[in-house]
Computed example of a mutant assay.
Amino acid sequence: MVQQVSDAELELMRIIWAKGGRVLYAQIMDELAAAGSRWQKNTVITLLSRLVEKGLLKTNKIGRRNEYAALVTEADYQALQTEKLIKKFYGGNAKGLVSTLIQRDMLTAEDYEELRQFWEEDNKSR
């Protein structure tokens, strides 16, 4: 079971996913710097170690450098977290989540139309 991650850990995972699921430590630091982050080396190493412990990453040694590889895709992580959210806040009822999105104007008419089309296409393929 994949554990939930902190916002900081998620930021690192997004960098790794954006780079195709495999990245060197130096590339992570470059991406953080480009985004204006001033995280220290020890902070990043600690966060990466936590992600390894949580089963989201594995480490490969390439000479003296560490390569980090995602063990979970971004889509799979999103799906797992969405399932947890629905169970926790809506008692497992996805319709409750959709109702909230509609009632709070978080789902536009365009979003609704795209979802309707997706639903129809998905039902045709089954």
Score class of each variant (00 low, 15 high):
residue 8 A to G: 01
residue 69 A to S: 14
residue 41 K to L: 12
residue 125 S to R: 15
residue 14 R to G: 04
residue 61 K to W: 09
residue 105 D to P: 00
residue 34 A to K: 08
residue 109 A to D: 01
residue 118 F to Q: 07
residue 117 Q to Y: 08
residue 123 N to V: 05
residue 51 L to W: 06
residue 77 Y to W: 10
residue 79 A to F: 11
residue 65 R to S: 14
residue 85 L to P: 02
residue 15 I to L: 03
residue 80 L to G: 01
residue 114 E to A: 14
residue 68 Y to W: 10
residue 125 S to W: 12
residue 26 A to T: 13
residue 44 V to I: 12
residue 117 Q to V: 10
residue 35 A to D: 01
residue 8 A to F: 00
residue 33 A to D: 04
residue 46 T to V: 03
residue 83 E to Q: 11
residue 3 Q to T: 04
residue 55 G to Y: 04
residue 29 M to L: 15
residue 27 Q to W: 00
residue 59 T to V: 15
residue 53 E to A: 06
residue 49 S to V: 01
residue 26 A to R: 15
residue 104 R to S: 10
residue 35 A to M: 05
residue 81 Q to M: 13
residue 42 N to S: 13
residue 107 L to Q: 06
residue 57 L to E: 07
residue 56 L to N: 12
residue 106 M to C: 14
residue 108 T to E: 01
residue 5 V to Q: 02
residue 16 I to R: 05
residue 88 K to C: 10
residue 75 A to H: 10
residue 111 D to W: 07
residue 28 I to E: 03
residue 40 Q to M: 11
residue 102 I to C: 06
residue 93 N to M: 08
residue 2 V to C: 01
residue 101 L to A: 13
residue 124 K to N: 09
residue 70 A to F: 05
residue 106 M to Q: 14
residue 123 N to A: 12
residue 92 G to F: 03
residue 66 N to K: 15
residue 27 Q to I: 01
residue 95 K to P: 01
residue 92 G to E: 00
residue 49 S to D: 12
residue 55 G to N: 04
residue 85 L to N: 07
residue 75 A to V: 12
residue 94 A to W: 09
residue 79 A to R: 13
residue 5 V to G: 05
residue 116 R to G: 02
residue 17 W to M: 05
residue 18 A to D: 09
residue 9 E to F: 03
residue 123 N to E: 13
residue 40 Q to K: 15
residue 115 L to E: 04
residue 31 E to F: 02
residue 88 K to I: 05
residue 21 G to C: 02
residue 11 E to F: 01
residue 9 E to R: 08
residue 59 T to H: 09
residue 36 G to I: 00
residue 126 R to D: 07
residue 69 A to F: 01
residue 68 Y to K: 11
residue 13 M to P: 06
residue 52 V to L: 05
residue 36 G to D: 00
residue 15 I to P: 00
residue 59 T to K: 15
residue 69 A to H: 11
residue 2 V to M: 05
residue 58 K to H: 10
residue 28 I to V: 14
residue 62 I to Q: 09
residue 103 Q to S: 15
residue 110 E to S: 11
residue 52 V to G: 03
residue 124 K to A: 13
residue 80 L to P: 00
residue 92 G to W: 07
residue 54 K to Q: 06
residue 104 R to E: 13
residue 1 M to S: 09
residue 24 L to Q: 07
residue 30 D to Q: 09
residue 17 W to L: 03
residue 5 V to S: 07
residue 87 K to G: 08
residue 93 N to H: 14
residue 33 A to L: 06
residue 112 Y to A: 15
residue 118 F to V: 02
residue 13 M to I: 08
residue 97 L to R: 03
residue 112 Y to I: 12
residue 11 E to V: 00
residue 117 Q to A: 11
residue 124 K to I: 08
residue 124 K to R: 14
residue 100 T to I: 15
residue 44 V to K: 11
residue 62 I to M: 08
residue 39 W to E: 07
residue 11 E to G: 07
residue 27 Q to M: 04
residue 121 E to H: 09
residue 9 E to G: 13
residue 89 F to D: 11
residue 74 E to G: 10
